[in-house]
Design a protein around this nucleic acid. Structure first.
Lengths: 253, 253
DNA sequence: CATGATAGTGAACGGTGTTAGCGAACGGCG
DNA sequence: CGCCGTTCGCTAACACCGTTCACTATCATG
């Protein structure tokens, strides 16, 4: 038991980290080529000239491998959003939010299989949440999802703090809803009016719904190309946040 | 080849139909208990005291069995919506739409596994649509999904025809979006202004997004119980359709 | 009754996730 | 350097999966 206090990058640890990365990269390639169901440990191992049991030296199960990939994907998505935010000109929160939204859709439509893993019903077991104890610690996947949500949340918060958009009065909200929003707000770094959190949820529901429907093919009954609808929704969201002027000044690229 | 001109319910055909039904019922039970991945032909067969190969006398593959279940689920969902619509009092389109929306959420949250099969990313292959020829005939699943969409579409249409809600002017819509909406409109039984179709899509996106997020657990980062948010969204949709009065008159059940 | 369609069986093929046991390579330490 | 424990990858194996095949009962019908 060589309890190295971390720090020193043993040659062995370095090789191990490289192998872990190669496995995840290969798995992701298999995921894209063969789909979620085709993502088998044996296929991954085959692709890198190994055998399936060897993968268990690095991941405790197929499920664990998938979870690690999901976390990586969330972080990659966050990075891509951050890049779009940084590149947005003018560098104002409204324009940045539009850029992030477009980057989100682009990422989703470009990497359909990965998106399905993160936001669809396939990735996480559908049922376990029922039995999950309320005080369970957050899983790495949930943490990564939280970081992702924070990108949009932070931008909407910045927009509000700079120029408050109209929000429903706290008194007009259903008590049950208000109580939950208050509890949620307490877990966040910034403090916003409850009504603003409600508006944020509305925006996120529409963005999520729009992109999900497009990627999962549930919009084909009406439209072949959903981009124009997406842009129109984006325009409406900008109006909702009182930043329609920002939408008007940004070309659709 | 006894080419009975249909009509006569041979004893044999009756038994066969019963077996088909039993297989589908059993499969659905397995789906609920074991999840999508646990829905195996062998498990179904085991549960009914048969062997897996025997199922191939009734369904050409596991995929085919799942497709048939999906169609049944769509129809069951439609029936449930229709029941809610019929039971709505007063029997006016706005109240009926609210009833249908609530029934949709109730069905989804009550049958999570089934909902994931219909509206998530697991059921239909994620990629084949890319290679699907544009002139391919509609699959039974697509037809069933169309019947489902028609319920909400019909109600929104009825609301508009009775008391037109505000719609964006056709001239203000992006040409690409307008063209697609026009093409879609031509495939429908009723003729509505293009702007009304746009509003319908907006409503559907929000309803779908809301229910999907709740069922797939993507709302847990903010809320424990999504019902109050759902009701608030519903109220906003009613306002969008100019029927806020109908929402106010209906208790939340 | 004889015939042919039908519904079920068990065996088998190739695939999967996963575990157990073995040997070879490797890094740290006396 | 040589020892020794850890790590790593392998093969073999188990249980399960979808699917095909050959075979046998059953049963309605000519």
């Amino acid at each position: 038991m060589s309890a190295l206090p971390a720090g020193s990058p043993n040659r062995r640890d370095r090789l191990r980290a490289e192998t872990v990365q190669e496995i995840k990269d290969t798995a992701r390639r298999v995921l894209v080529q063969r789909g979620v169901d085709g993502l088998s440990l044996r296929a991954v191992a085959r692709e890198m000239g190994m055998t399936a049991p060897a993968l268990y030296r690095y991941f405790s199960s197929r499920e664990n491998l998938v979870e690690n990939i999901v976390v990586d994907l969330y972080d990659e998505l966050c990075a891509e959003l951050g890049q779009a935010v940084d590149a947005a000109r003018p560098a104002t929160p409204p324009v940045q939010l539009l850029a992030a939204s477009r980057a989100f859709r682009r990422w989703a439509t470009t990497r359909r299989a990965e998106f399905g893993l993160l936001f669809g019903s396939a990735g996480d077991g559908l049922l376990p949440d029922v039995s999950a104890p309320a005080d369970a610690p957050e899983t790495p996947v949930q943490e990564a999802a939280g970081r992702f949500g924070g990108v949009f949340g932070g931008l909407v918060a910045a927009i509000y703090l700079e120029r408050p958009f109209p929000t429903p009065a706290e008194k007009d909200l259903d008590p049950a809803l208000r109580a939950q929003l208050v509890a949620w707000c307490r877990t966040l770094p910034v403090e916003l009016p409850i009504g603003a959190m409600r508006v944020f949820l509305s925006c996120w529901i529409r963005l999520y719904g729009m992109v999900c429907m497009e990627v999962f093919g549930h919009l084909k009954f009406a439209l072949d190309d959903a981009e124009s609808l997406f842009e129109d929704e984006l325009r409406q969201l900008a109006e909702l946040l009182g930043v329609a002027d920002a939408y008007a000044t940004v070309e659709r690229a």
